[in-house]
């Protein structure tokens, strides 16, 4: 990593998320650390339930009232996100950091047009006339590769295909030229062809606008192709972080090693050796992974 040349845009130290449940506390995220520079791409990898989505929601301050994340440091630029007032957070969200969700159909409001939803972020954060906002919306729709952008503004989400909707989501996230984008499995619900296009689009736009990108995924193929660095989460803890090339060349932790073995590739051994993942609550005390990983059995 090229440290000390600039300050990280996002710093997280010892982020912990505990969820109170009827039967006890669920330690969903157990003390994770990472830094993110401007223009850098971090991929958080892990299986469903490993805490990666919770982490992103915590960063955006969208966890809801019942769940209180804790951290020694969670700074966006100079703003301490955990201490910030709801007002400060609102002014950050959408304007300087924005989020792209997995399922575009559920994250777009079905009863508003694409145009309304695109312009909303700009209008909320003020200082923009409807006309400018509209112009910007058209510009961004074109940028994300949507043809006939102007006529799309008056369409409703259900009139668009999955790939188009995801592009609209990306355009929406870009409206205020954020410095940080958090994308939670942005391509999992899409065809491979569309996935490649959307990812390429994200990478191009990132290079153009110099944004930092956190991409949450369970697909190591995606990680390899776009990440600068990788954080592997397992059962709420970061088990491995490092530059992408290093991780793929020699994963030191058995879990990412197992994951890499799992990818169906020509010429690779047939057997997948990762043990079955059985959820946090089944973890033995101490957070060991011995239960699941044949390497340690």
């Amino acid at each position: 990593m090229t440290d000390n040349t600039q300050n990280p845009i996002l710093r997280v130290k010892n982020l912990t998320i505990d969820i109170p449940t009827a039967t006890g506390t669920l330690h969903a995220v157990r003390g994770i650390d990472f830094d993110l520079m401007r223009g850098e791409t971090l991929c958080i990898v892990g299986e469903s339930g490993s805490g990666k989505s919770l982490t992103s929601l915590a960063l955006m301050g969208l966890l809801g009232r019942a769940i209180r994340p804790q951290a020694d440091v969670m700074d966006f630029e100079r703003t301490a996100l955990l201490e910030a007032s709801p007002k400060t957070l609102r002014s950050l969200r959408g304007a300087r950091m924005s989020m792209i969700f997995q399922e575009p159909m559920t994250s777009l409001n079905p009863s508003y047009t694409i145009g309304d939803q695109l312009m909303e972020a700009l209008l909320i954060h003020g200082g923009t006339s409807r006309k400018t906002a509209r112009g910007r919306a058209i510009e961004l729709l074109q940028k994300v590769g949507i043809t006939a952008a102007e006529s799309r503004l008056s369409q409703f989400p259900h009139q668009l295909s999955g790939g188009l909707r995801q592009r609209v989501m990306i355009a929406m996230a870009l409206m205020c030229e954020p410095e940080l984008i958090i994308a939670d499995e942005p391509t999992t619900a899409l065809d491979v062809t569309i996935q490649a296009q959307i990812l390429r689009l994200l990478v191009d736009l990132q290079a153009e606008m110099g944004m930092a990108l956190i991409l949450i995924t369970h697909d190591l193929g995606v990680v390899a192709r776009i990440a600068d660095k990788v954080a592997v989460m397992y059962a709420g803890a970061l088990v491995e972080t490092g530059p992408t090339a290093d991780l793929f060349a020699a994963p030191s932790h058995p879990y990412p090693r197992g994951l890499l073995n799992c990818i169906p590739l020509p010429g690779k051994p047939d057997r997948c050796e990762t043990g079955h993942y059985c959820g946090h609550r089944a973890l033995p005390r101490g957070g060991g992974l011995g239960l699941h990983l044949p390497h340690q059995m």
Binding site: T23, G24, H276, C278, G279, R281, A282, L283, P284, R285, L291
Partner: peptide
């Protein structure tokens, strides 16, 4: 494919596995 193994120390959270 095991949920939990009987060799593990009894853990209140483990009960929730099933």
């Amino acid at each position: 494919m095991t949920h939990s193994s009987s060799a593990l120390p009894p853990d209140p959270l483990l009960q929730e596995t099933l």
